[in-house]
Simulated scan of single mutants.
Amino acid sequence: MKLYFLPLLFTVLFFASCSEYQNVLKGDDTTAKFEMADSLYQIGKTGKYKKSLRLMEQIVPLYRGKPQAEKLMYMYANTFYVLEDYFVAGYQFERFETSYPQSDSVERAAYKSAKSYYELSPRYSLDQKDTRKALEKLQAYVNKYPNSNFREESNALVKELREKLEKKDIETADQYLLIGKQIGSFKPAIDAYENFISDHPGSIYREQAFLGRFEAAYNRAINSIPSVVEERLITAKGYYTQYLKYYKEGEMKAEADAILAEVDKLLSTYDTTTTSEN
């Protein structure tokens, strides 16, 4: 008989709980709102976080300057984080860090603020404005808290974001080279590869950038007006020399050597012309 009444009991308790929540939500008792928000937050379930957030949104402005404000503001920021509203979470954690620099939770807040921006970083093929901001925030965190428990994870996130930017930038340069082959303009590709080499000295795509710059310079030379072809071929050969300096045993050396052979072949015609004139 007892088992028969269990579903009914749970139903009654559920509606009683909902009724209590609605009464507190609609009421004017800020202490009750705080206590219920805290209780729901501690349960740690998505639905409870959402209910807790509704209560916190009502009382956050009222608790400024009060002893409970520090705890409330951390819960408030973290609720946005848990609910994956990372834009607001990043901002709220930043506010917490500024408002409570002596808090025991300030380091964790700083990390979660930086991590929020990381979560906003899109896939590499899209605009990387948020990725650069996330990288800036994470690097600032690592610099500020060098002995943090989150240091290892932060460094891993920094590495991931850098690789994302590298992939974006190398594909942009490759795209310039492809467009150049279609329209006969290779200076943008050369500039893009040079920027990549300068901006990403430790990149796994660095050899690709050196080779791409050499190939772009070669194509620029052979698509130039006759009076500047020789000069640009010599410039291109200089890029090969720079490639060889770093990648004498490189994976792409055969491809670089093939382009060099074409450069030398064309330059030899200028040497022949000069000799016959003499």
Rank of each mutant, 00 (worst) to 15 (best):
M1E: 14
F5I: 12
F5V: 07
L6R: 09
F10W: 10
A16S: 15
A16R: 13
S17H: 08
S17N: 08
Q22D: 14
K26R: 11
K26F: 15
G27K: 03
G27I: 02
D28L: 05
D29T: 08
D29M: 10
M36T: 05
A37C: 11
A37W: 12
L40Y: 03
T46I: 05
T46W: 04
K48R: 10
K51S: 05
L53K: 02
P61T: 04
G65P: 11
G65M: 06
G65C: 06
A69I: 00
E70Q: 09
K71V: 05
A77Y: 06
N78S: 10
T79W: 03
Y81L: 06
V82R: 12
V82F: 10
D85Y: 09
F87D: 07
V88A: 05
G90P: 09
Q92P: 02
F93G: 01
E94K: 11
E94Y: 11
T98Q: 13
Y100W: 08
Q102T: 15
D104H: 14
E107G: 06
A110G: 07
K112R: 13
Y117L: 11
Y118E: 04
S121Q: 08
P122H: 08
Y124T: 06
K129F: 08
K129Y: 10
D130S: 14
R132L: 08
R132T: 03
R132K: 12
K133Q: 06
A134I: 00
A134F: 08
K137I: 02
L138E: 00
Q139M: 14
Q139N: 08
N147M: 14
F150M: 12
F150S: 11
K159F: 10
L161H: 10
K164P: 05
E166K: 07
K167G: 04
D169R: 07
A173L: 01
D174T: 00
D174W: 02
L177A: 04
L177I: 00
G180Q: 03
S185G: 01
F186L: 01
I190R: 01
I190F: 04
D191I: 09
F196D: 00
D199S: 10
P201K: 12
Y205F: 14
Y205I: 03
L211C: 11
R213D: 06
R213H: 10
A217R: 00
R220I: 05
R220Y: 15
I222R: 01
N223C: 08
P226S: 07
P226C: 06
E231A: 09
T235V: 13
Y246K: 09
Y247A: 03
G250P: 13
A256S: 10
A256K: 08
I259F: 14
I259N: 01
I259C: 03
E262L: 15
D264Y: 00
K265W: 06
L266F: 09
D271Q: 12
D271I: 11
S276F: 15
E277K: 15
